[in-house]
Design a protein around this nucleic acid. Structure first.
Lengths: 249, 249
DNA sequence: TCTGGCTATCTTGCATACAAGACAGAAAGC
DNA sequence: GCTTTCTGTCTTGTATGCAAGATAGCCAGA
């Protein structure tokens, strides 16, 4: 029942366990993460659980409601838009700055796309979710830049939380096609095209969200009474006017 | 002698005090941050100092050497290259995705550039360092995307630590010119050009670094004896072959 | 004089104790 | 029956205590 690792490995395990739980869609947004329960689960004291929570909080994955508990974030519609915007900026910037695809890179992506195809055939939704997000992390890994990889991993985690909240139907096949097109452009050495395709792909996925669905069923009432929005998320949920950034080019 | 805030404000104060100390070049890389000293300074217990340190560690600003202490990171030459690479990717991606400059945005940047000019004339080096970094954060703020702002703030902090380690002479006037050119392109609505100029500007600053200077004077000996590199930084300090990302376009 | 080891001290690592706020459910008053 | 209040319980917030590793300085011995 207990894990009770030998405390060298437990160091970062709590943090990574939760992140990978999110990346594979096993942990839903809003999940409460009790310090006591996690402490018991990992066989450590609350202290170390709290440290992991603090780290996850600065990574934008978890949120604390004072004296109530830690919760996996429930991104608001605005948050969702900001995350997709940030991903477009970074991923397009990344692809545009690439200038070659090594053999190992090519075969890594190829293997990944084959896995996507297999998961698509088998219909394993959790695995599909994981793979769909992981594709973008793999691209970041091609750059060899650990900073960008870390950033995109956290943004991907948030993306998955977003889709669990707002994605009514899962257009996995469409996403897979998008990934294949990006890969083809990269193989052809046309990284500008790959960047454009990446923006289009993220646009497609974002457009597939129903951002009028309210994760907080009380938010309409709340805002009509002009109460403060839930600290964790929500607020007005209509898609606001896009400010300075353009969607595609 | 003590600050001893009323503990509501102290919440994030420790973290932000250190970050802004770095952003204004008042805290040098390698500075030791003693839990006890900080606790006394802020009138809190070590617990909260540790929380702040953990957060700063996940932000890539601080580093712990087990049972020895917390230290402001001393980026290695590879780290420096990775940070500049990430900044080029993100800032160019950001500018490319912008499509308009609001009046407030224009005047904010204009005011900032005037401040740069004043600081340049007065010769206040710390203030100059701060302003030179802050320009890029201001651009990020134009996007209204808090995620990107946070990312670039942390990268800017690291950049400043890098320049304190590797920048022999401070080409502030050249940087200021670069900023002005970027601003002009933005005013002209040519954001593609602004992105290109931004990449060139970051290239210039990076080229101004002397990455053969060793922050760890023992690193040559260390590597010739093939000992493990200092956990905090160093390693082989020659500029490695650039892998997949191109500098400018 | 130099080397080696011992010890005193200072550091973080981690657990625990207690304080205080949030909440749910029962009980009392209307 | 409905509302209100109170109280017990559960949560995190924070401080503190102790353990254990790292380091520097001293002292003894060659």
């Amino acid at each position: 029942m207990q894990d009770s690792q030998t405390s060298e490995t437990t160091q970062k395990t709590i943090e990574e366990t939760i992140v990978s739980g999110i990346l594979s869609a096993k942990i839903r947004p809003g999940t409460r993460l009790s310090e006591n329960q996690l402490a018991a689960l990992f066989g450590v004291s609350r202290t170390r659980v709290r440290e992991a929570m603090m780290r996850l909080e600065t990574r934008g994955i978890v949120h604390v409601s004072p004296r109530r508990g830690w919760f996996v974030i429930e991104p608001s519609a605005e948050d969702a838009i900001a995350v997709y915007e940030a991903r477009r900026v970074i991923e397009a910037g990344l692809l545009r700055s690439m200038c070659a695809l090594t053999d190992e890179g090519r075969s890594a992506l190829d293997a990944h796309l084959n896995e996507e195809k297999r998961a698509l055939a088998s219909g394993n939704r959790q695995r599909l979710t994981y793979l769909m997000g992981d594709f973008h992390i793999r691209i970041a890994e091609l750059s060899g830049n650990a900073i960008i990889v870390d950033i995109l991993r956290d943004l991907t985690a948030r993306t998955i939380l977003i889709s669990m909240l707002y994605q009514s139907e899962f257009h996995a096949a469409q996403s897979h096609d998008g990934h294949c097109r990006i890969f083809e452009a990269m193989q052809a050495g046309d990284f500008v095209r790959a960047a454009e395709l990446s923006v289009e792909h993220l646009d497609e996925v974002e457009m597939g969200l129903d951002l009028t669905t309210r994760p907080d069923p009380l938010s309409e009432l709340r805002s009509s009474l002009s109460l403060p929005p839930k600290t964790v998320a929500s607020g007005p949920t209509v898609r606001p006017k896009k400010p300075l950034l353009q969607r595609s080019n």
